[in-house]
């Protein structure tokens, strides 16, 4: 049950991560290693602890136990903004754009961590700030074009159609120049055509931008289509891991989806 070793060093390494809410153990001693330039998926029935696991990585929750290493450095105890600055970005299951801001502004906020200008720069606009701002806007437009929203920068985030909002979230995440990108159900609510486009986008993220992608996804077509490695969570514990094929044939996975968690739709 080895990870899909592609010869790259490990990007993210979760070691026996445990997160409890009161009596409920949402994530129970989960260990996952993700090599760089890999698309890794975390799947599992609803309530399996996938999003909680994401929240532990991005620093929204502090795990009670275990450690999360990013490029060999522990993330535990760092604030979300520090973790973002280290090179981890994410999207959300229920789209969370800055709704009163334009698409371009959303992406510009994504760039926040590697822009420098502060209050002084904002007020007096020295040439360094002007230059930085111009470059940032240029980069943000390129980012929008990359995810398939060229020329939509001046639209209000909420006025972009649903599929586009998901892409805009990815653009915002990319703007922080991450090494690891966490996508939380990026194809939820999309039609088959949009889903195909997004799968293609995920592959480009890995191949063109050399990113490591960690994906939560319910649509098995997406999971099996783009993943190099799949981990299965069930009631907070990891019950299987391997290539898409290995996982598909694992009897424990079949049981988790059909036997006890039978209410699940996609699988």
């Amino acid at each position: 049950m080895s990870a899909a070793a592609n010869g790259h060093p490990v990007c993210l390494s979760a070691r026996r991560v445990t997160k409890r809410f009161g009596g409920l153990v949402a994530v129970d001693s989960v260990s996952i290693d993700i090599p760089e330039r890999t698309v890794a998926s975390v799947i599992g029935p609803n309530g399996a602890g996938k999003t909680t696991f994401f929240n532990c990585i991005t620093g929204l929750y502090a795990p009670e136990d275990g450690d999360i290493l990013f490029q060999g450095r522990s993330l535990v105890g760092y604030r979300p903004d520090s973790i973002a600055a280290m090179g981890i970005a994410r999207t959300y299951q229920n789209i969370r754009l800055f709704s009163a801001m334009t698409a371009l502004e959303n992406v510009l906020v994504g760039q926040h961590a590697h822009l420098r200008s502060g209050v002084f720069g904002a007020i007096f606009r020295p040439s360094s700030t002007v230059l930085e701002e111009e470059r940032a806007q240029q980069e943000a437009r390129e980012m929008l074009a990359f995810v398939g929203l060229p020329g939509r920068g001046d639209l209000l985030a909420t006025s972009i159609p649903y599929g586009g909002q998901r892409r805009l979230e990815i653009a915002r995440a990319l703007a922080s120049r991450p090494k690891l990108l966490l996508l939380d159900e990026p194809t939820a609510g999309m039609n088959p055509q949009e889903t195909d486009d997004l799968m293609h986008l995920i592959e480009r993220l890995r191949d063109e931008l050399a990113l490591t992608v960690l994906l939560i996804e319910h649509d098995m077509r997406v999971v099996m289509g783009v993943s190099d490695q799949v981990s299965v969570l069930h009631y907070g514990t990891k019950i299987s891991e391997g290539t898409p094929k290995e996982v598909q044939n694992d009897p424990r996975v079949v049981e988790a989806y059909l036997g006890t968690g039978g209410s699940h739709g996609h699988a």
């Binding site: 620093g59 929204l60 604030r79 979300p80 903004d81 959300y92 800055f98 994504g110 915002r172 995440a173």
Partner: peptide
């Protein structure tokens, strides 16, 4: 929360 996770 999102602002913070985006690096603010």
């Amino acid at each position: 929360d999102v602002a913070e996770a985006t690096g603010v």
